[in-house]
């Protein structure tokens, strides 16, 4: 579906005041994701709880998306510089988190 079609559809729905606030949509996603997290994480074997913590570190560094947007403008001001620092901090975690997780997981071997 093209963007124009989509916004047309949204426009019509809004006229009928049937569109929920974007916050409510986000909140729905948030609650559903907590349920997914609950079920997925209880299935993680206790032996892998340390890799779970290091990989979740990498995953929460998805805030790099916000950092890139913050550091995105060419004009250098407080907002851009803070964004760029945040890009660096999140990168430490993304690379560090995934690589140390991989290093740990490679150690778990079966009896030969």
């Amino acid at each position: 579906m093209s963007d124009t079609l989509m916004s047309d559809a949204v426009g019509h729905a809004a006229q009928a005041s049937q569109v929920a606030d974007p916050f409510v949509m986000s909140f729905s996603v948030f609650i559903l994701a907590i349920f997914i997290g609950y079920h997925v994480v209880w299935n993680v074997t206790p032996a892998l709880h340390t890799p779970l913590m290091s990989v979740t570190n990498a995953i929460s560094s998805i805030v790099i998306v916000g950092a890139i947007i913050a550091g995105g403008p060419l004009e250098m001001n407080l907002a851009t510089v803070l964004g760029l620092i945040a890009v660096g901090l999140a990168s430490v975690n993304i690379f560090g988190g995934f690589m140390v997780t991989q290093r740990m997981l490679a150690m778990f071997k079966k009896r030969s």
Partner: peptide, 23 residues
């Protein structure tokens, strides 16, 4: 994620949040 209105950040954050809570 809420500030940016970005569902991916909300999903990833909620997963990590519930993971830490369970641990």
């Amino acid at each position: 994620g809420f500030t940016l209105g970005n569902n991916m950040l909300i999903i990833a954050g909620a997963l990590v949040g519930s993971s830490g809570a369970i641990l």
